[in-house]
Design a protein around this nucleic acid. Structure first.
Lengths: 152, 152
DNA sequence: CAATCTATGTCAGAATACTGACATGAGTCA
DNA sequence: TGACTCATGTCAGTATTCTGACATAGATTG
């Protein structure tokens, strides 16, 4: 087991803690989604489509933080199984707007309940003030990290 | 990119934002580590060993948030390339304490500089108070998420 | 108008991490 | 002591995601 709680650099690193939190969140989500036969990326895709119907493959990929190739494979599976539909030909350009089917919507409903329970649990013990503080701080981190990628 | 308020609103979800921040951090780290021919898991392993020499394969896996099988494959590669050493036989039980070689330490030094620059950038624009607030909040999330896994 | 640039969808192969399984060593308990 | 449980290291196969590459549609620019 962990021999000692020796406080070293990793113990005080916000980056490490961010990774730890993200890992815990992912594990918790996988746990509640597994009984539904759904992965996190799978759920993310359906949730994005519910909130923004007609999103393209590339837009879904960016929203789920995977490559468009990965999302394409997932969409083909979801389409084959009847959870989403895409037109055979692009109305404009090459972009294929994707939509949830009735089946996809019903599948998402159960998943949303499960995922919401995780989010509620994660927020337990945090005040409203702390939650909005966390929101602001995470946005600040994202902004600062992206700055370096594009600009410099 | 407008959204209608159905289900879990991704624009206001702390879970989604946490995933976004973690994704941005990972991308930024990969970018600075790629020139050094090092992956994030690779770096995490070396950093853990520098701070806690003698860690076992399983302990490293937990610290880097991967399975012990994944870490084992990585350790075999690192050992083959002379970055770490493990005794041929376990001093006690089956646990093989791992240590950095001189080469491993030198390789880590460059990586640490690169990664630190990312962390500094991430923290830019945050006050000391905000940083400790973020620390406390992330720890609270982790604690709450783990609660459900073990206890219930 | 033509050349160029950017973004998209998609196929294929490579890299990475995971689950399953097995044998082994250490601690627990009756 | 012997049975049981737990954690470990490791091998093998599977799953998931990524990188590379290509053709094509729309926008931009001269």
């Amino acid at each position: 087991m962990s021999q000692n709680g020796v406080g070293v650099d990793l113990e005080t690193s916000l980056g490490y803690l961010l990774k730890e939190a993200s890992s815990a969140l992912r594990a918790a989500m996988e746990e509640v989604l597994r009984p539904l036969g759904m992965s996190v990326t799978h759920y993310s895709c359906l949730e994005l489509l519910a909130q923004r119907p007609g999103l393209s493959n590339s837009e879904l990929a960016r929203g789920a933080f995977v490559t468009r190739q990965t999302m394409n494979v997932l969409l083909q599976a979801l389409e084959r199984e009847g959870y989403v539909t895409r037109p055979a030909e692009a109305p404009v350009g090459k972009v294929l707007p994707t939509r949830l089917t009735h089946r996809g919507r019903r599948s998402l409903e159960k998943a949303t309940v499960a995922v919401r329970s995780v989010e509620v649990r994660m927020l337990a013990g945090m005040t409203e003030t702390e939650q909005s503080g966390a929101f602001r701080i995470l946005q600040s981190m994202i902004h600062s990290l992206r700055e370096g990628n594009d600009g410099a």
